[in-house]
Design a protein around this nucleic acid. Sequence first.
RNA 1: CGGGGUGUGGCGCAGUUGGCUAGCGCGCGUCGUUUGGGACGAUGAGGCCGGAGGUUCGAGUCCUCUCACCCCGACCA
Length: 414
Amino acid sequence: MLQSKLFGKTRKDISQDEKSVNAELLTRAGFISKQMAGVYSYLPLGLKTYRKVEQIIREEMDEIGGQEVLLPTLQAKSLWDQTGRWEELEPIMYQFTDHHGTKIGLGATHEEVITDIVKQYVNSYKDLPIYLYQIQNKFRDEKRAKSGLLRGREFVMKDLYSFHDSEEDLNKYYKITHQAYLKVFKRLGLEAFSVEASGGAMSKHNSHEFMVKTEAGEDITILCNSCAWAQNKEIANVKAGDKCPDCGKKVEEAKTVEAGNIFHLGNTYSKGMDLKFTDKDGKQKEVIMGSYGIGLGRVMGTIVEASHDKDGIIWTKTTTPYQVHLLNLAKSDKRKKEANKFYMSLKEADIDVLHDDRDISFGKKLKDADLIGICLQIIISDKQEEIEFKIRADKTTSLISIKNVIDEVKKYYS
RNA sequence: CGGGGUGUGGCGCAGUUGGCUAGCGCGCGUCGUUUGGGACGAUGAGGCCGGAGGUUCGAGUCCUCUCACCCCGACCA
């Protein structure tokens, strides 16, 4: 991609109203644009990163047997009345009446819709288990949208729902998703850990949240640094300085962002919506459910919160919008031609590269590159025959010959 | 939803006790000189001051209402 053609510009300034680090950097770097409080557009650069996050999550969901679906956003009140949640979610759900006089809500979550569908296809224990997921917008009329991408009113979420013939089977799958979630966050380059949590309004059963430590976090986690024990402060019986229930060492408090969660739903929804199956013994039983969510925008925002410096964003290897940011400083026609040829050869080698071919000062190119945060910066100039191979994270630079670049890039990302 | 704050060219801001033609920086156009950490000079375009109403000879400045955004808190599948 030629940067001269890239839609969106970097900015030096942003309103002092914007206090959130992720919103400031992502806006200044041209990844997102705010439409209204808690509602953002993704610009070309932002969508590149978003797609990478999405693909990692999709692959891991497929890996544990998930099948992707796409559920509607418009949902009738009558559906929600089956579980009584139309009233329960009224404070947070966008609800309105259409021209036919039908009461409609924008999907704040999709348990009712998915359960209604599954009901149409499940009769026997032979039809179970079922794992369905989608990656789709959710709408929540948050009392206070804040922290940029961390708490929006319209946001994309991956939600997986599992349907089982027994608690035991759910427990088994719950553990599998738990592992899959850890893998997702690891692949994204986030240091996430799971904590025990209350199910909140979603579920009265146990659940886990996947937390990332950052000052921008809204949650407080009590955790043990000696072992893996951690609980959300909301449900913790111990406080900072107390002994860890598992290993006896002192526990501490940390601010965290909840990047994902998994819930035991049990029979809450199957009971309300009469989702039953015939078991081996010929008896009708309620389907046992679980649900598992990850907020994609929140993940992007969290990466920025967890990985940036005074100059800008530092993307992780798997979420960098482009693999290489080629900074073309050549002035002589000969060198310019070489730079273009070099750009083409990178593309031919299947390396995703953003080529800063703009006719602007070098200082601005470097500032922009640091702000945008692509993992590798490759600088080509008249100064020397070699190119500079620069790692954004620590700004270490090495001179290497052009013919070795492709190998070095592939090595870096392998 | 309670408390606090802010709305002025594309972006960031200034504008005193109301006063004349609404300023500055960035960005943008043109010309020239530049080119290794957001270059410089010249020149030019662009705003009716969030919106509505009111007070006044006169309102960006005062009053009322309203919309929006940000921060703290409460809330948070």
